[in-house]
Structures are given as structure tokens and as C-alpha cells.
Design a protein around this nucleic acid. Sequence first.
DNA 1: CAACATTGTTAGCCTTGTCTAAAAAGGCTT
DNA 2: AAGCCTTTTTAGACAAGGCTAACAATGTTG
Lengths: 175, 175
Amino acid sequence: MDATTTELSASLEDYLEAIYQVIAERGEARAKDISVRLGVAASSVTNALQGLVKRELVQHAPYDQIALTEQGEQIARNVVRRHEVLTDFFTDVLSVDPDTAATAACKIEHVVGDTIVERLVEYIKYDQRCNHGGATWVEGKGFVCRNALDTRALCDECTAQGFCRFLGPPTEEGA
Amino acid sequence: MDATTTELSASLEDYLEAIYQVIAERGEARAKDISVRLGVAASSVTNALQGLVKRELVQHAPYDQIALTEQGEQIARNVVRRHEVLTDFFTDVLSVDPDTAATAACKIEHVVGDTIVERLVEYIKYDQRCNHGGATWVEGKGFVCRNALDTRALCDECTAQGFCRFLGPPTEEGA
DNA sequence: CAACATTGTTAGCCTTGTCTAAAAAGGCTT
DNA sequence: AAGCCTTTTTAGACAAGGCTAACAATGTTG
């Protein structure tokens, strides 16, 4: 089995993520921590660890601590990043409540590809920097652009400057 | 087994979706169509059908056509809807290319919850109706609000009207 | 209507991932 | 160092879902 090529299952990604986070929080990770965090039987952890060790993503001698290999840590970081990006997007852009956002991110993080994630990152940045673009969720009304809520103040400023003040002057690409 | 309560696996959702689409396209569905569409062995289809029949989501006598029950069709429609919403969001809002969008939607449709889907719907609507809010992906630049691309025309209009012209006047909720 | 091609089903195997129960290892505590 | 409690591992079962190979039904066509 080629460890570098094989796609990792959602389940194994979850283990990797949990290991990474426990190490980050506690300094070290033991099987118990993982089983508690994932709500899974201890034997399931042993089982998963064997798979991860075989793939060289984890270092683990029986009855000992759990550590990530270089490779494993990289994958874990990636999963965490996807999780964070999704969470941020759901809460900041879509104004979804934190619990729902977290739950959704936990599932989607295992299936979303890089292209989408990077676009989401850009979209979040856009939403943060541009008072034109940023919309706000208003219950019973849908998404409303901030200009519509903040009186005309921003629009005046926009006109005065002739461009979106956070992006620089208009480009020639415009219609 | 309580057919109404049990969560459906991603795999069975895929079968349901395929059956729905084949019926929509061809008027009827047979096992072969499904195996071809999903790229799966014929026996896998038989197998899945048994599960779906047991759950009363599909009607199917051996060697006969495949039909959806009321229940099954409802679930199928739901999956299709999630797929479409995701695809639209990825292409229209995030400007991701159609292939990537479709691939991502195929996977995410099985794990995304209703709350997020409905927010995405609203966001797409917002993006379509509000020239303030709508952003456009510009390669090498990120998302740029349409105002920044379209010269100041829209901004002038915005100022003249004092509000986002697609949403009505500013509300008191504004800061 | 009989032969053959296509389609569908069955049977049996494999992998992944979970569980429980039982055994083994480690670590405290006296 | 002996005993006890916790943690880990092993062993074995099970469900899902996929595959191949073999068999059965259907249907088409001389």
C-alpha cells in the first residue's frame, strides 16, 4: 500500500484530527483521550491506530503515547484548516449559529476539496474587508447588504472615492 | 426498523438520486441504468434495491422496473435539491468551475444539513438581486465587489436612492 | 420455437469500522 | 513486592457495501 497516495477515510481523518488536537491541548495524547473525545470504544482506537501506523501517519508503540509523524501532522493540520474555514464561513458569512456551524464543518471537512476551501477563504476575506459586499443575515428578511442597514453613509463615501475603498480604484475590466 | 426515522447512508441516497434522475430522463428505470450511472456492479444495485425496498423507499419486483414510493421520491427530491443548491452556490457565488462544483456537490449533498442549505439559498438570492453585495471572482485578485468593477455608476445610483435599490429603504436596525 | 445475448439475482468473499468481553500491561499504594 | 485499578490490546461478532463468478430469467431473432 502506498501511504502517500491512498485517500484517507473520514474515520481515519477524524482520529488524526483528534490526536492533533489532544496533543495541542495536553502536550501528549493517549488512547483514552481519543476514545473519550470521539465517543468511541477503546478498542476502536487501538484498531484505528494500527491503520494509521501502517500508513506511517502515526508513531505508536503498544501501551505508549501517540505521536504524529511529519506526514500525519500535515494531514491533520489540513483537516483542521478545512474545519476552521468551514466554520468561519458558516458563522461569519452565513450567520449560522455556532453549534450548527461546528456540526456541519465536522462532516463536510472530510469531503470538501481544496479548490472550494480556498475560494471560501477568499470569500470570507472579501466579506470582511468590503463594506459594499458584506451582507448581514436579518431574521425574516434574508441577507441584506450592509449599506442598506447603515443608512447612506457608506454609499456617500463610496461615491466620493469612486471605488470600493477597500480594494482600490475601479479597474478597466469593469463593463 | 422504523423506515421514517432511520438515517439513510450516503450510498443509499446515491441510489435513490440515480433512480429519480433516470426516471426523470427516461420515463422508467431498470437496474442496468443505475449500475451504469453509478459505475457500480449490477449485483451491488440488486443489493441496494433490497435495502431500499425493505425501507419502503422503492417498489421493485425481481426482474422488473424500479419505482420510487412517495417517501422515496420525497427523499430523492431532497437530495437533488441539496445537490442543486450546492452546485449553484459554488458556481454562481464562488465562481468555481462547473466540474469542480458538481464533484463537490455530489459529496457534500449527503452530509450537509437543512439549516445550511436554506442559508445558501438565501445567500444565492442575495447575490443575484443585490448589485451592492454581489462579488465577482477575479483571477489573481480574489473576490471583488461589482461596484469596484463597474465604475461608479452603481454607487451614484445607490447614493441617489439612499438605499440598496433591490431591497427597499434603509431600516432603523442600521447602526 | 429454440438458441443466444442481455439483464438480474444469488452466493460467497473482502474490507472498513464499530462493538463487547476477556486478557494483558502499567502504575499506584501500602 | 503484592494487590488493585485503569488503560490497552486481543479476539471474535456484526453490519454495510463493494466485488466476482455462477446461475436464472427475459427477450430477441432467425
